[in-house]
């Protein structure tokens, strides 16, 4: 029998507003996809929140982030592009990229290259 996996897209702003909602999804067994690369401080916040949520059923998370594509950073007009990205980040706190968080009971390991994330179930 095939296994159904739920992937929940959570906008970055929603994650910032209501972290508990993200953990409700993870505890239900969903993989959460955030439409931004979260910062290291936000990652440590998520780790601390994970620790608060760990119990006999919820064993923790696997998390990975992926950056803006490297080619775009090197391309023509890259300075303008990066400056615009910095302004956008300063205004919204949102950095281009994605963040994927999965419950450890479902995802055994995550591995990443600069452009890809591998999930081992």
């Amino acid at each position: 029998m095939s296994k159904k996996i739920s992937i929940k897209l959570v906008p970055y702003e929603e994650m910032r507003r209501d972290m508990d909602a993200v953990f409700n999804e993870l505890k239900k067994g969903s993989i959460v996809l955030i439409d931004a690369k979260i910062s290291p401080e936000e990652e440590s916040e998520i780790i601390a929140k994970t620790m608060e949520n760990i119990d006999l059923r919820f064993k923790g998370i696997e998390i990975s982030t992926i950056d803006v594509k490297k080619e775009e950073k090197k391309g023509k007009g890259s300075k303008i592009f990066l400056t615009l990205e910095k302004i956008k980040k300063a205004l919204t706190g949102k950095e281009r990229g994605i963040t994927i968080i999965g419950p450890a009971s479902l995802i055994k390991k995550m591995e990443k290259t600069p452009e890809e994330i591998y999930l081992y179930m």
């Binding site: 290291p40 990652e43 995550m110």
Partner: peptide, 15 residues
Amino acid sequence: PVDQVNITILGNLEA
């Protein structure tokens, strides 16, 4: 060494 926990620790120290 390419582990998200290590990346998070180093990222926090840099920030």
